[in-house]
Computed example of a mutant assay.
Amino acid sequence: MFNVNWKRLGMVAGLSLSLVAAGCGSGEEESGSSNEGNNGDSGAPNYSEEMDYTITGIEAGAGVVSSAQSAVEEYDSLNGWEVSTSSSGAMAQELTSAYENEEPIVVTGWTPHWKFAKFELKYLEDPKEVFGGEEEIKTMVRKGLEEDMPNAHKILDQFEWETGDMEKVMLEISEEGSSPEEAAKNWVESNSDKVEAWTKGAEKVDGKEIELVYVNWDSEIASTNVIGHVLQQQGFDVTMTALDNGPMWESVASGEADGMVAAWLPGTHGSQYEDHKDDLVDLGANLTGAKIGLVVPKYMDVDSIEDLQPAE
Rank of each mutant, 00 (worst) to 15 (best):
V4L: 13
W6E: 10
G10Q: 04
A13V: 04
L17A: 10
S18T: 13
G23N: 13
C24P: 05
Y53V: 00
T56A: 13
E59F: 14
A60P: 08
A62R: 02
G63M: 02
G63A: 06
N79G: 14
V83N: 11
S84F: 04
S84W: 06
S87E: 07
A90M: 05
L95I: 13
S97C: 01
N101K: 15
E102W: 05
T111K: 14
H113M: 12
H113W: 12
W114F: 15
L121I: 08
V141S: 03
V141A: 04
I155Q: 07
D157N: 15
F159W: 11
E162S: 12
E167Y: 02
E181A: 13
E181G: 10
E182T: 13
A183M: 07
K185N: 02
N191F: 11
D193H: 07
E196R: 12
K200E: 12
L212Q: 07
G228V: 06
V230R: 07
G235D: 10
V238M: 03
T239R: 10
L243A: 02
G246C: 01
A253T: 13
E256Y: 10
E256K: 15
E256V: 13
D258R: 09
M260T: 15
A262Y: 09
P266I: 06
Q272T: 04
Y273V: 00
E274G: 11
D282K: 07
G284D: 02
I292D: 03
V295M: 05
P297S: 09
P297Y: 11
P297R: 10
V302T: 04
E306Q: 12
L308C: 04
Q309P: 00
Q309T: 15
P310Q: 04
P310L: 09
